[in-house]
Design a protein around this nucleic acid. Sequence first.
DNA 1: AATGTGTTCTTTTTT
DNA 2: AGAACACATT
Length: 712
Amino acid sequence: MSFENLNEQQLAAVTAPPGAVMVVAGPGSGKTRVLTQRIAYLLQEQNVAPWRIMAVTFTNKAAREMRERLQHELGEDLRGLSVGTFHATCARLLRREGDALAPQYTRDFVIFDTDDQKSAVKQALEDLNLDPKKFTEGRMSSGISAAKNVLITPADYQATDHVGEVIKRVYARYQEILQANNAMDFDDLLLNTVLLLQRNPLIAEKYRQQYQHVLIDEFQDTNLTQYNLIRRLVGEGGNLFIVGDTDQSIYKWRGADIRNLQRFQQDYPEATTVLLEENYRSTQTILDAATAVIRRNRNRVDKSLRAMRGHGELLKMEEAYNEGDEAYRVLNELRSLMVNGYNAGDVAIMYRTNAQSRALEEAFIRAQMPYKLVGGLRFYSRKEVKDVLAYLRVIQNPADEFSLYRIINVPKRGIGAKTWEGLRAWAQAQGWQPTQGLLQMAEQTGLAVPFSGRALAQLMQFAHQLRHWFALSQRTSTTVADLLDTILKDIDYKNYLGEDTDEGAERWENVMEFRNVAAVADDMPLSDFLEEVALVADVDSLEEGSSAVTMLTLHASKGLEFPVVFLVGLEEGILPHSRSLQSDDPEDLAEERRLFYVGLTRAKDRLFLYHSFQRTNWGQTNATTPSRFLADIPSEMVGGLAQAGQRRQATKQSMSSWSSGWNPSGGSSGNSRPSPVPRPQPNQHGNRKRKSRATPRKRGAPKRVFPVWRRP
DNA sequence: AATGTGTTCTTTTTT
DNA sequence: AGAACACATT
C-alpha cells in the first residue's frame, strides 16, 4: 500500500509515532481514510499483528467498509482484527468471557431492544406498585439510561429528589428483571463490559496486553462509560488513536460527553495532535455557508475549512406553502436535476424528525418516484418480524419471558391473560421459568398442572412444539433458516397473517425477507445471528449505487455524503427542535446548530434548503417561522430566491393534476413568491381539504431500506 | 377470549 | 391524525 495520495496532514496522522494521537477532522477531510490507512500502516510498516488492533467505529456500515477496504488493499489475512461499534465490540467480548458473567448472566444472554426495554420498565413499575401515570416509562427509561452512561449502578445511584429516588428503585428492579431474563439492554453491553473488566483484573490485563493499538472514530460522541472502557483497554502508556470533531457532536442526549476530550488531554498530555482542514467533499460555497453557521456557536475552536474543489453552484433556499408543497417542490427540483444528469441515487433528503418523512413519502409514492427510507418504522420493529424473532429468541434463551409472552398466543391458541398468569405462577412455584415449565409438561406425562380442558390441550400442544424446536436447534446441522422454516410451518404463520389480504401478503413478504437475512447467515450460530439482528442500525443497510433517493434524519446522515442534499423543514420548533428551545441549557440549542452543520456538510455539489409557511403537527396546522439558522447563511451564497418565481411558473401546470397539494385558490397569483401572496389563514376552510388524502399511506412503503446483514 | 369503543399520548434524535 | 392502551361488551 502506498501513502502517496495523502496530504501532509493526513500523512502525519497516519504515520504518527506510537502513543496517543488525536486527529481533529473537519467534515469531508478524509478521516475515514486516515483511520483506515493508519491501520494499514500499523499492519504493514510497523508489523503489528491484526489481532493486536481494535478499531471502534460509529456504525456497523463504517466497520464493514473499513474492513473491506483493508482487505482489498492489503490482501492480507485480517483475522483477529477487531473492527466494530462499541456495542458490537462489547457484545463479542462479553460472550467470549461468558463464564465471568455468572451468576447473573450466561453467555447465551439476549439483547433487549427498545421495545423490550419498555416492557421491562413497565413490569418494574408494576412490581413496585408505582403509578405509571406519575412515573412514566419514558422518564424512567431515560433516567436509567443516563445513569448507565455515566457508569452508575443502582447501588451507586445518588438520588437528589423524589423522582430520582423513584428512578433508583425502578432501576434496581429493572436490572433484576433483565437478569432474570438473561437479557441486557444496549447500555448494559457497555456498562457490563466495564464492570467485568473492573471485577476481573486478570481478564482486563489479558485484553490490555492483546490490544496494543486502539483506534476510536467519532470520539466526540463517546460517553463516560465508553471512555472508562477505553482507559481500561489502553492504560497509561498505551497507543490510543482518536478521531473526532467537536462541531459534529450531536449525541449529547444519548450521554455523549464532550468533556471526554478534556479527559483525554489530561490523561495523555503528550499526545500528538493533527488537524485535518482540507476538505475534499464539498464546494467552497457549501463550506462557507456551513462555516458561517457553525461560527455562531460559543466555546469552540475555530477551524478554517479549505475546499479542494471550486466554488460550485449557489445554494438554493425556498419557502413552500406546507409540507405537501415542500415535498412537491423537492420532487420537481429532483426531476430537473435528473434531466441534468444527476442520478436519483446521488440525492438525499434530510429532516430533523422521522415523522417528517411522511409527507415526502406520500408525494413520492404518488409520483411513483422510488426512494429508500432510513429509519422510521424499523424493519425489526414490525410486528410480524418481531413475532418470528421472538420464537427464535425463546429458543436461544428460554429465560426470556418477554419473548415467550409475545408468542404464546400468536397465532391465537386460546391462551389468554388468565392462562398465562396461571402458567407463570405455577412455574414459579416449581422454581422454573415459564418456558422450562412448558418443557417439563411436554416431557413428564404425569405432571400435575393447574390447567384443564381447552387451556391444557393448547398449552400441551405448544409445549410439544417448543420441545421439538429446542431439539432441532441443538443439532449442529440445523441452520437458522432451517429452524425458522420449521417454526413457520408448525405454526402456520402464513395462514395466520392472512394470505388473501394485501396487508397479510405484505407482512408475509417481510417475514420472507427476514428469512433471507437468516439464509445469508447460513453457518452462523443462533446466538450470533440474534446479536447481529439486535445491533444493526438503520444506516447500516444503506447500499450505494442504487437509483433511488435516500430519505433520512440528520442524525442518521452523520458520516455520509451525497452529491445533492435537500434539507427540509427548516423552521423554528423543528430545527432547532422545540425541545431545545424549552430547555434551559444553551448547549441544547448549540447542538441543534451542529446538527444543521452536519446536514449542510453532507453535500458535495448542490444544497437545497426548504422551509414551509405552515405545518401540520399532531393534526394541528400552524403558521411557522423560518429557522434562525437560515439567517446565518450569508445571502451572497444563496441563489434560489431569484429563480423561484420562474421555476414555479414551469411547475404550475402539473400542479392541477396533483390532487392533494395545497389548493391553488388560496394563492391565485402563482407566479410570485409565496411570501407576498395573501396567505390563507391557518383555519380557513380551504385548508381542510387535506383531510382526504389522495393516497392513504400504505403500510410499509415498498422502498424501505432493508437491513440485510452481510458478513465481513 | 376475542372484538369493539373510547381515551390519551405522541415526536426529537439511536446503538 | 394516528397509535397504543384501558376498559367494556359479545
